[in-house]
């Protein structure tokens, strides 16, 4: 398994404010798989993503990504793990406001010795004509594409996407999803997408549904639909 969690538990708060967010979640994701994690608000999907990404500590259980036990990593080693393995895409892009598109991508280019070709990536993501613009000069979709490019440029083994289309309109969302699909195909990147959007599950290989911190559904999607054909985005 490329990504695996075993009996993963995570809680927040103490006493009266104690919340058990993940109640022993075990999942397995193969290399190159596109996986969607769905669930209602508070179901623990973002927390699961954060635990896999090493952004959040876990209470118990195991998280293994590409053979690395994430829970054993601290500080610099955790940074090195993220640097070597992960790319993140967020709902609100989180681009450096006073760097251009190209520069924002370049920020992550240096993190690996073997980055993807910048120009090719920019072209693939349709950012060629915007590459010298600042984030504030771009639309939401363009900004998200820039964020994807930034995440991809270091050629990560795993792409973790937290509501990548959450702030986008339907058309732009489709474009982004097509792009992710294309990247998965072209670069073989394993993708874990957290989303509220019910349609996205149709385009991925693997669907995990969380409910109240537990696995509610976990299945392989046998009837994958291309992103371009998704409805109700």
């Amino acid at each position: 398994m490329y990504i695996e969690t075993r009996d993963l538990k995570k809680s927040y708060g103490e006493g009266g404010s104690f919340v058990q967010v993940l109640k022993g979640v075990s999942i397995k994701i193969d290399k190159g798989e596109m996986c969607v994690i769905q669930g209602t608000s508070g179901s623990g999907k973002s927390t699961l993503l954060n635990c896999i990404g090493g952004l959040d500590d876990i209470d118990s259980g195991n998280v293994s990504v590409a053979g690395t036990l994430v829970e054993c990593l601290k500080g610099e080693k955790l940074s090195d793990y993220r640097r070597a393995n992960l790319g993140f895409i967020f709902q609100f892009y989180n681009l450096v406001p006073n760097l251009t598109v190209r520069e924002n991508i370049q920020v992550c280019e240096y993190l690996t010795k073997d980055p993807l070709n910048m120009d090719e990536l920019i072209e693939v993501l349709g950012l060629t004509e915007h590459q010298y613009k600042f984030p504030s000069q771009l639309s939401g979709g363009q900004q998200q594409r820039c964020a994807i490019a930034r995440a991809l440029v270091k050629n990560p083994k795993v792409l973790l996407c937290d509501e990548p289309t959450g702030a986008l309109d339907s058309k732009t969302s489709r474009d982004i999803l097509i792009l992710l699909e294309k990247i998965n195909r072209q670069y073989g990147t394993t993708m874990l997408i957290v989303t509220h959007n019910n349609s996205i599950k149709n385009m991925v290989d693997h669907v995990i549904y969380l409910k109240d911190g537990e696995i509610y559904k976990d299945y392989i999607n046998e009837k994958k639909v291309p992103a371009s054909e998704l409805e109700d985005l």
Binding site: G53, L55, E76, S79, D80, Y81, R82, R83, A84, L86, G87, F88, F90, F92, N94, L95, V96, P97, V107, C108, L111, A147, R150, A151, K154
Partner: peptide, 16 residues
Amino acid sequence: QESAVIGALYSMGVKR
């Protein structure tokens, strides 16, 4: 102001 951006960069493996 740039807290989230910094968080994003950290997530990518940019070091403190």
